[in-house]
Nucleic acid binder design. Structure first.
Length: 376
RNA sequence: GGGUAGUUACCAGAGUGGCCAAAUGGGACUGACUGUAACUCAGUUGUCUUUCGACUUCGGUGGUUCGAAUCCAUCACUACCCA
């Protein structure tokens, strides 16, 4: 994997770049649709490519390991062959599940033992075997196994959690560097910065991670219960330290406004379930604001879903029709909403890129943040 | 014509003397959702009020009772059965 830094904004830390992988090029800033269980929910690959114009998608180690399982993925020849997505894939390591499935898991120095949410069976994830699993999945970008510390954690917990994540990082890297990809194309490994909402921990973590000298870095443990302003502050602190010539990936973020604010602070890569999950639940993000399609006010609105979008669902269907599909609980509602939201997120980061290139990013961003947070 | 069962909020439906503005579903309305255990979850759903609370309801009318959705009488309507 290579990263080429292309433009740097004069008035903010925003920048554009180009990531080259064996499965193709990614232009940053980029949003990566989440495809946890080998599918971006409710969206076909063809729509992902042609309508949404996704450049890279995510998979999840925890979910894929449990189902379909490593034997199937290996027989398939990796996730790209299995789901038919021939562009880059990034896999989360399961670190977020360690956090979100707390209750069914036990943290130890060696790793995490947990019970499957599917059948209750017991499993162990370690920094090493999570690398092996991501080798088998065949992700272009492999994530370190970390603990996604809750935003409400106290300093003492955040510190010891961060330190364990660092020890896990060293083990994971050592294992990564002594193993080979399975399918003939290269894989890269991104460490993850933790440190909760504490600036000194964040600095310490960013320094630790930078010292590992990898091809890209992730910022984890944000948008997990802390105020947005705290998140922005942490991004600033961390990006002061992370090297400018490597991509920075802010994990799990976020709302359109979060993404714009993070781009202005120097983040290059994003992923979030929000466009798909909230879409399935009736929420549409547009450049003019947020619409809850279940609301009665759309019942008689026969205008296109998003007149300013060139995505086909936005021109093809009306608000009244989409509201009808949601109230009737029809599957097509979720498909349309997911495609629309993902296309909007892709438009947002692409437009941000154009604005950075043309030197107008900051003023555009300030205006756009107001627009995208409006309730329609 | 005779018999039986029934009539409760938007719908279905529980409640058979005070703890009932009335269970539970559905529907409707509103909100939440950030590295996906999520086509999920939460709230509201008689009227007025920000709250406390006040007021009017359980087919109609009249009665019994300190007190009625609940008991009695009667009328209306519905369903099924027999002719």
């Amino acid at each position: 994997m290579q990263f080429e830094l292309q433009h740097s904004d004069a008035y903010s830390a925003a920048r554009t770049g180009k990531i080259t992988t064996d499965h193709g090029v990614i232009e940053t800033p980029i949003f990566m649709p989440v495809g946890t269980v080998a599918t971006v929910k409710a969206v076909h690959m063809r729509e992902l490519k042609e309508d949404i114009k996704a450049q890279i998608i995510l998979g999840n180690t925890y979910h894929l390991y449990l189902r379909p399982g490593l034997d199937i993925l290996e027989k398939a020849g990796g996730l790209h062959k299995f789901n038919g997505w021939d562009r880059p894939i990034l896999t989360d390591s399961g670190g977020f599940q360690v956090f979100s499935l707390a209750g069914t898991r036990k943290l130890k120095e060696e790793g995490v033992t947990f019970r499957s949410h599917i059948d209750g069976s017991k499993h162990l994830f370690t920094p090493e075997n999570v690398v092996d699993t991501q080798r088998i999945i065949g992700a272009d970008i492999i994530m370190a196994f970390d603990e996604c510390t809750p935003g409400t954690a106290d300093y003492a917990y955040a510190k010891q959690s961060m330190e364990r994540t660092h020890r896990w990082l060293e083990r994971g890297l050592k294992h990564f560097d002594t193993t080979e990809p399975k399918y003939g194309y290269s894989q890269t490994f991104f460490p993850i910065v933790q440190g909760c909402v504490y600036p000194d921990l964040r600095r310490q973590s960013a320094e630790f991670v930078t010292a590992q000298n990898r091809e890209g870095y992730a910022i984890g443990g944000l948008a997990v219960g802390e105020p947005a302003e705290k998140m922005y502050e942490m991004i600033e602190v961390v990006n002061e330290i992370l090297p400018k010539d490597r991509p920075r990936y802010l994990m799990g973020v976020g709302t359109p406004a979060n993404i714009l604010e993070a781009i202005s602070r120097g983040v290059d890569m994003f992923d979030c379930v929000m466009p798909t999950r909230n879409g399935r639940n009736g929420m549409l993000f547009t450049r003019n604001g947020i619409m809850n399609m279940r609301n009665k006010k759309w019942a008689n609105d026969f205008s296109p879903i998003d007149a300013e979008s060139d995505c086909f669902v936005d021109q093809q269907y009306t608000k009244a029709y989409l509201r009808h599909l949601f109230t009737a609980n029809e599957l097509l509602a979720m498909q349309i909403a997911s495609i629309h939201n993902l296309a909007f997120y892709m438009w947002l980061v692409k437009e941000a890129r154009q604005q950075i290139i043309s030197g107008t990013f900051s003023s555009w961003k300030n205006q756009m943040v107001k627009c995208v947070t409006t309730r329609l």
